[in-house]
Design a protein around this nucleic acid. Structure first.
Lengths: 162, 162
DNA sequence: TTGACTAGTTCCAAAATGGAACCTACTCTG
DNA sequence: CAGAGTAGGTTCCATTTTGGAACTAGTCAA
């Protein structure tokens, strides 16, 4: 399967990865969440090739994750800002941060810690059930065929039917 | 920056991505969470080139995300199972699922829905603060330099100091 | 002894990436 | 007004990564 085909899979993970699943995109978005908006600043922080960055930003705009806003004329220049769709990737960032902090810290503790301003505490993000608030583990969750699954797809995976 | 250098960044996102940030790895892990364990079954579900799958599984074993367990001798055959480190990637999966369900569903609703067995409800995963239980948004969270950040790195990003 | 099954590896072409140089449209400084 | 500087790209080319198909290895079963 080629990469440009994966977005057609009836799977939200595959579809999400078709947008953010390459080498650089999530790092570009990390910078967005840290407040970076301009081409040169992305490039300096990330150390990636200019045309690669150009591609990635363009793709993210196409996908509606970022939008281009002019910040000057003469010459016309744009900055890149997160849309709502982009901001909604924050939990993806946090889940990667959490895992990296725990398993990839080389015994030195997390490089960055996070304060949750409303409650004032240093926070560790936790993924919980929207209904009961308990932390979610794979063992306790059963995937089942949903409305967006075409009939023929069901055999492809092992989803239970509701 | 080349890909094999990103794991050295003082950033948990970069470090996580050095393990799971390529085209296929998270899809391989999706299959793991669905109960797939054997080479041929991964290949059939994913439709990826055999040697690519071989690489990825090998890398995941190296990184301690999967472990190889023999399931027969003559000829010796192994299956691949999630370690604790691997199981702990479940929130990463869920966060991608959540985003894809919401923004990439093509108006047809999610292809797969999830039941949280302990509470019996269909669940939507939410990322919350470990301390107060409120949902986390980028605006409400302030990143600050942590113990794993080397002194010289601080200027590289915009982290506040604690 | 032929075929099937599982899990690979090898070879090669195609695609993605990285690095450096170049381009464009300004502005600023002397 | 010439020359340097700035921001945001694009072009060219070598290197790396991927995808596809064919081949191998060990074992069983007919």
């Amino acid at each position: 399967m080629r990469w440009d085909e994966i977005e057609n899979q009836p799977c939200s993970i595959a579809r999400s990865l078709s947008v953010v699943g390459d080498r650089w995109t999530l790092l570009v978005l990390r910078e967005c969440f840290l407040g970076v908006r301009r081409f040169e600043e992305f490039r300096e922080h990330l150390g990636m090739a200019r045309h690669r960055l150009s591609d990635r930003l363009g793709r993210l705009v196409e996908e509606g994750v970022l939008r281009k806003e002019p910040y000057q004329d003469k010459p016309l220049r744009h900055e890149y800002r997160l849309t709502d769709k982009g901001k909604d990737l924050y939990p993806v960032m946090l889940s990667l941060v959490r895992w990296g902090d725990h398993w990839m810290d080389r015994g030195k503790g997390p490089p960055v810690v996070y304060r949750h301003n409303p409650c004032g505490h240093m926070t560790t993000p936790v993924m919980v059930c929207s209904e009961c608030g308990e932390a979610l583990t794979a063992r306790d969750v059963t995937p089942m065929a949903g409305p967006g699954l075409r009939r023929g797809d069901k055999r492809l995976h092992r989803y239970n039917t509701a």
